[in-house]
Nucleic acid binder design. Structure first.
Lengths: 132, 132
DNA sequence: CTCCAATATGCCTCTGCGGTTATATGCCAG
DNA sequence: CTGGCATATAACCGCAGAGGCATATTGGAG
C-alpha cells in the first residue's frame, strides 16, 4: 500500500520536524511557526500537507488551531518496513561487519582483531532520535 | 540523524517499487527496467538515487550490474519511527480519546459529544522526547 | 580489432514543490 | 458593529526532480 501522500509528506525535513514537535505534545500554529523558523503561510501549507496525509488533526480553540499527531499513518509506515525488518535482524551483523571494515575511519587498531570485538561503542543505528 | 537523502529516495513510488523488488532477491538492471515499466535511463537514474542514499549496492557481473538491497538505511527508518511506535502500541485508547475530541474538517459524524470540557493536555515527557 | 550487449550519463522539457508577499476568513473583545 | 489577532488561502516565482532521447562507456564475444 504505502500511501504516496504519506511518503510525500514525510519527505520534507520541515514536516518531519513538525511531526517530531507534535510528538511531544499538541501545539497551536504559532508555536510551530516559531519552532521551525519558517514564515506563517509556509508553515500553514506544510500543516495542510500533513493534514491531507492524515498525519495530524486539528482542534479549534478560539482563534487558535491546535494541531495534534495522529499515529495511525506512522503505523502504516511501520507496516511497510515490516518485511525489511527481518533483513537486518538476520544479516545485519555480517553486513555491518563488512561495512565497518570498509569505513575504518579513525579507528586505532580495530582491524587487527578478527571477530572478537565484543563491545563496539558505535552502534549508531539505534540511538537515532527524530531530530532535524 | 534521519538522513534527508534516505527520505527523498523513498519518496518516489517507483523507487519504493524497486526497493520492494530487491527485497525478494538481487536483480540486474534489465530486470528492474522491465518490472517497473520505465525507460532504461530513467530506471538507471532511480538506481543512482537509491545508491547515493545507501539503499542498494551493486555487484558487477560481466556487463550486467546486479543490484541488491542494503537494509541498514531502512533500519535507520525503523529507528526514526521508534518514538512514535509507542504511541499506537501503549496509549492508543487515551490518545484516541483525545483525537475524538479534536474537531476535524469533516465534522459530520462526530456531532454528539457528552458533557465534558476540561481540556488541558498533560505533557508526557516521559518518553524519549526528540529535543529540538 | 571490431562489434554488440548492458548500463550510465548528458541535455532538454515540464511538472510540482517550497518559499514569499498580499489578502481573505473566522473568532473574540470592546 | 468594528477592530484586531490567529490562521488559511491565492497569486506568483525559482528551482529541483522526473521523464524521454541520444550518446558515451565498459566488458565480452568473435
Amino acid at each position: 500500500m504505502s500511501d504516496d501522500s504519506l511518503w510525500a509528506a514525510l519527505a520534507d525535513p520541515h514536516r518531519r520536524a513538525i511531526v517530531a514537535l507534535l510528538l511531544e505534545r499538541p501545539r497551536p500554529v504559532g508555536e510551530i511557526v516559531e519552532a521551525c523558523g519558517l514564515s506563517q503561510p509556509s508553515t500553514s501549507k506544510h500543516l495542510r500537507v500533513l493534514r491531507d496525509a492524515g498525519l495530524v488533526r486539528v482542534r479549534q480553540d478560539a482563534q487558535r488551531r491546535v494541531y495534534a499527531l495522529d499515529p495511525a499513518p506512522i503505523a502504516e509506515l511501520d507496516a511497510w518496513l515490516a518485511p525489511y525488518r527481518k533483513l537486518w535482524s538476520t544479516s545485519l551483523d555480517a553486513l555491518g561487519r563488512r561495512l565497518d571494515e570498509t569505513v575504518t575511519d579513525t579507528a586505532a587498531e580495530t582491524a587487527a582483531a578478527p571477530g572478537e570485538s565484543s563491545d563496539e561503542e558505535d552502534a549508531d543505528t539505534s540511538t537515532t532520535s527524530p531530530k532535524d
